[in-house]
């Protein structure tokens, strides 16, 4: 929504977290984690370019609102427990 010139600062100063950008909508492939095989190596978390993975007790939780589906987590997973599946597929 375009803001009136009266509502904006003098110059564009960005002060809001980028979590407003639903970059998960870009995704063509979705990471699916088989938690039962996870070795808690944390590599998926470490190499996620978007910081879209958080660790809960060492196990990844992928935030699909932001995951762009690059597949680095699946590529780097030491237990090979992440697979990329086409969006829309089960």
């Amino acid at each position: 929504m375009t803001k009136s010139y009266e509502e904006i600062p003098l110059t564009p100063i960005s002060d809001s977290p980028s979590t407003m950008n639903m970059t998960g909508l870009w995704r063509a492939f979705r990471p699916v984690v088989d938690i039962s095989r996870c070795k808690k190596c944390t590599l998926c978390w470490k190499f996620c370019p978007d910081g879209a993975i958080t660790l809960v007790d060492g196990v990844p939780v992928i935030d699909l609102k932001y995951c762009k589906g690059c597949g680095i987590c699946a590529q780097e997973c030491s237990a090979e427990c992440i697979v990329m599946v086409p969006e829309g597929a089960e």
């Binding site: 407003m20 995704r27 660790l55 609102k65 762009k68």
Partner: peptide
Amino acid sequence: TKTTIPEEEFTYPGSTGCPGCGAN
């Protein structure tokens, strides 16, 4: 779990970099 790099993040998700961007 012990991580090999600091766990604290100074970035938010939602950057508009390309998927798999090294610069991120």
